[in-house]
Write a protein that binds this DNA or RNA. Structure first.
Lengths: 133, 133
DNA sequence: CTGAATCCATGACGATACTG
DNA sequence: CAGTATCGTCATGGATTCAG
């Protein structure tokens, strides 16, 4: 009734799986989370240097979303020049083991998948930012 | 040297995490995987009925990708009308525990996240396709 | 029944410039 | 230093149509 002009923005299907996956499966969230795992507390500029490919905009957006989801803390110091520190919340830390389980699986399967995909014309240069032991 | 006209399509950063996440974090893959977990072998039409929101195109694309990654099997019966059955491969099944760990976490945190997000104007109708016990 | 092919809307993302 | 604002590009995915 109230949805005459525009479509209903409420979609019937949004299950927990999709909700959580959409939160961490964007382009940069995982990378930020793992970067913060290695260095518990980081300033904005540090994160940017640790993840060279990310733009300021996307780093900001990613951090804001992670903050909204209670995965990272954002601590602002009232000083000039500004100083803002980011760190994982306990919820963010509780996510790590699960994420690691998934990534371990990924590493196990990666070679095989790459071979399977070879004839599909898949690129794979392996310079990764985060070191996996 | 060979990249004069066009940009290099090879991006320096593609780490295993991103590679695997990008494979399962599209809109439908997870849903298909979990649907196939519940009913081991399903025909195309069954999958479509089990996931009402998905379009034929996206179901096809999703299944093709999952097949390329060795996560689902595709079995074609040479008959008219066509009959195609999909099922999880062993690799697909090995993914499930990890995925479940993540989803358990998601369920645990979901309520809290929703409350945190309330003031951000987040929609959340909870009619999910897959039942979580 | 199981797709393939096409067109198109949306939103994610990147580059750049500007600011307290 | 840590953002915000704006704009352009491109991939994702939905609707529709055609086909074996």
């Amino acid at each position: 009734m109230e949805a005459d002009k525009q479509k209903d923005e409420i979609f019937v299907r949004d299950c927990p799986i999709r909700n959580i996956l959409s939160r961490i499966s964007d382009k940069w969230s995982i990378l930020v989370i793992f970067t913060l795992e290695q260095t518990a507390v980081m300033r904005f500029g540090e994160l940017q240097r640790a993840i060279p490919d990310i733009s300021q905009k996307m780093l900001t957006v990613t951090l804001r979303t992670l903050e909204q989801d209670g995965i990272v803390n954002r601590r602002v110091y009232a000083q000039i020049p500004p100083k803002v520190e980011y760190s994982l919340t306990s919820r963010g830390q509780s996510l790590l083991p699960r994420l690691n389980a998934l990534i371990d699986w990924a590493k196990e399967q990666m070679d095989a998948i790459m071979e399977d995909r070879a004839r599909s014309g898949q690129k794979a240069s392996a310079t990764s930012i985060i070191q996996y032991e």
